[in-house]
Structure formats: structure tokens, C-alpha cells
Design a protein around this nucleic acid. Structure first.
Lengths: 203, 203
DNA sequence: TTAATAAAATACCGAACGGTACATAAATAT
DNA sequence: ATATTTATGTACCGTTCGGTATTTTATTAA
């Protein structure tokens, strides 16, 4: 479906687009949107600028396409998280999975959506806002899940679903900063354990 | 002492250096180290490039001098925080003061030290590391304070001072991200209240 | 009044930025 | 075989980047 077998007209593309996007993703992940230069992208992907622009569009469009793969791939665990049976399981799963993801050595540390465009020039405010919206959408996913937990009697009536969601996403964002400053998996896991101690449960 | 009354030889400087640094600080605060351009700096300070370089040095040195004012000014509350009588007071004070600082409309939102150089090009890794070291030094200040609290019997023996400190600084860093994405003072205060629920106290 | 000093203003530097025109090469369709 | 299509490679675009050489101006010391 995605890789069409049908013979295409014209000179065949010499690189795999998905692989190229994954390499681009890794650069944006390490450098941020503005910190990643077109030169570094073309060098790493092994293709030249016109091919890059022809295949994906301008820098912002390349970023958005790489971001789509990030969302569909590494970060897809969030769906699995909100499907956990209890609110506590959701919270614990979210934080633990985040720590494992952040410290996975197979890719850059930390979260692209948190860090790639926090402080940018006036030219890139669109990208900054785009990522802020992504962050909020994930937080909202958690909040909705906790609302459901309240209805199901899984969380006390006086629990504030939005506060719980924002607490978790704040920790998540903070841990992303921590891990890029050298925090270890063990250290982050201790934070997670401590943070969950006051999690509200139905008595 | 700092403003020397003694008549200086040569053409007098037409701008106030401290005021200029404060303006530079605000730009770095909003834009980050790389996102702030020399052009925006000179336009905002109302001085031209040779004057800027003559007074403060190159971009990295300007940043460091602005950072010094940030550390000595807005962020100096950390000393007051660790002087609180109990570990709980330290933790509560730290988080509440952080929220008030982050949401103060008199300056850009969030924390310069957290956000100004998280994702940067290879050229600016020095600045990234510099800020990471600052973050760690503040965390270490908290950890030392909690060690003292354990000695004083103010924290249980089984409490982990470093974990508590890292928990607080993780929340701090996460809240800095949150506030630049639009989180309100009230929302952050609810997070703080919730986060402190599990704070260990001597029974 | 003149020399020395230091900042201001203008104009410029090479390099890197994101982005593209244009000619060429490799495939399919007719 | 030829036309059409599409990607590649080279070479280039104007702009902005951080940073400076040079001249002029304003002040103090002698």
C-alpha cells in the first residue's frame, strides 16, 4: 500500500523516503527545528538539496513530515497507556514508558515535541505553537481518561482530572529536560515512584 | 562601586550598561540563545554592533553577562528558599515561588536557564552545557538542604534527599515548559498542591 | 590648544542560511 | 526510436548570520 509496486514514470528515486524521514527526524530531535540546518540534513540523508525539497518541501514541511513519523512511531505508546484498566495504571504506565523511551539509546534522548522548538526566533513561532498544541492534545487525552475513571468510580469524586493530567504531563516535560542534562534511567524511575505515592484511589 | 563617578577619559558611553544587559536578557529569555540575533539585540538596545561588541564582547559573552544578571536578580530567591526552617517549607516555597516567577507578567514567561539552549546546533553546545550545569547546581542546593534536614530529623531517615531534589527540579523544569505553552498560575498552583501531598514528614 | 583616549557610526567581511534555476540522466509510455 | 516524465547534480540566488576595520566624534589630561 505505502510502497507502490506499480512502475512509476521518470527517473527512479534513489533513496527510500521513509528512511530519509527517519534520519531527518533524528536530526530535528537532536538539534531542534532551528538548530537543524538544511546542510546537516542533506549530508546525513546523503541526498542533495533539490532532491530533499522535491521530495518533502521546505524545512517546515520536512519537519512536519518527520514529526508525523514520530507521532505514529515512537510516541504511539500513549494509546496503549490510556487503555490501561485503572487510572493509577494509566499514570504509572505513562511515566514509566516515558522514562524508558527517554533513556532508550537507540535514538536521541528526550522528547522531540517538548524540546524541538521551545525557544525560537520570530520566524519559527508557527512551529513552536504547533508543538505546544501537540503537547496539549496528549495532556487532554489523559484528562479525558481520568474523567472516565471518575465516572467508573475508579477515581474519587473530588479528584480533578485536569490537574492530574497536567501534573503528569508536567513531570513528563520536566523529565525530558532532565534526561538531556544527563539524568539516568534509575534516577528518573525513583522520581516516578515518588510522584505516584499520592495518587488518589477510591478507598 | 559599580557606577564609577570618577570622570573617564574618552567619549562617554551613551547607554547604561546594566539597562542594556537587562534588555539583552529579555531577548535571550524570549528567543533563546540561538534564536536571539545580534540584529534584534542592537535594535532593541538602541545601540549599534561595534558598541555592543565593545561593551560586552561576542554573542556568547553577552549571553553570559545577561545570564549573570538573571542569576543575581530574578533567580536569587533560591537562597531564601533553602533558608526555610523545614524541608517541607523549602519544597513548598521553591515550587510556589517558581510559579509566581514563571507567571509574572513583568518579564517573559518560564525560565531562561531551562529553555534558552535546550535544542541547539553543534556550534552552541557550550551554552547548552553551561545551562545544564546551572540547573544541576540549583538541584544540588536543594539536595544538600534535604541532607541537612535528615540530620536534623526533619526528614525521615529513609528519605532520599537527591530524589526529592530531583523531583522538585523536574517539576520546576516541566512547569517552565507548561507556562510557555499557556498554563495559568492557578493551574500550576494546583499541580504544586498535589505534588506536595506525598511529601515525607517525620511522624 | 593640543595630544590622548574611548565610544559612536558607517560600511564592510566571509560564511552560512534557506531555497531554486537549469541542465542532465534514467526510467516509462507511445 | 522518440517523447514524456521525474529525479539528480551543479551551480547559483538573495538574505541573514556573527563579527570587524576604519573613520568620526566627544571627552579628559597635559
Amino acid at each position: 500500500m505505502s510502497t507502490d509496486i506499480k512502475k512509476m514514470r521518470g527517473r527512479p528515486r534513489v533513496f527510500d523516503m521513509d528512511e530519509a524521514l527517519d534520519k531527518a527526524l533524528e536530526i530535528f530531535w537532536k538539534r531542534g527545528f532551528e538548530g537543524a540546518s538544511i546542510a546537516e540534513l542533506t549530508e546525513t540523508l546523503g541526498i542533495n538539496k533539490p532532491s530533499l525539497y522535491g521530495a518533502f518541501g521546505n524545512k517546515e514541511e520536512i519537519f512536519k513530515k518527520a514529526l508525523s513519523r514520530y507521532v505514529a512511531g515512537p510516541v504511539a505508546f500513549i494509546q496503549e497507556v490510556v487503555n490501561q484498566p485503572t487510572a493509577f495504571d494509566v499514570a504509572q504506565n505513562f511515566l514509566i514508558k516515558a522514562v524508558e523511551f527517554f533513556t532508550d539509546t537507540k535514538h536521541p534522548k528526550g522528547c522531540l515535541i517538548v524540546q524541538a522548538a521551545l525557544s525560537v526566533s520570530a520566524d519559527s513561532l508557527m512551529v513552536k505553537d504547533l508543538l505546544a498544541n501537540y503537547r496539549y492534545s496528549y495532556e487532554h487525552l489523559l484528562a479525558k481518561r481520568f474523567e472516565k475513571a471518575k465516572e467508573e468510580g475508579d477515581l474519587p469524586n473530588d479528584a480533578n482530572a485536569e490537574t492530574l493530567a497536567k501534573f503528569l504531563s508536567t513531570l513528563h516535560q520536566g523529565m525530558s529536560v532532565q534526561v538531556t542534562s544527563g539524568a539516568s534511567k534509575a534516577e528518573l524511575m525513583e522520581i516516578v515512584e515518588f510522584a505516584l505515592k499520592s495518587w488518589p484511589r477510591e478507598k
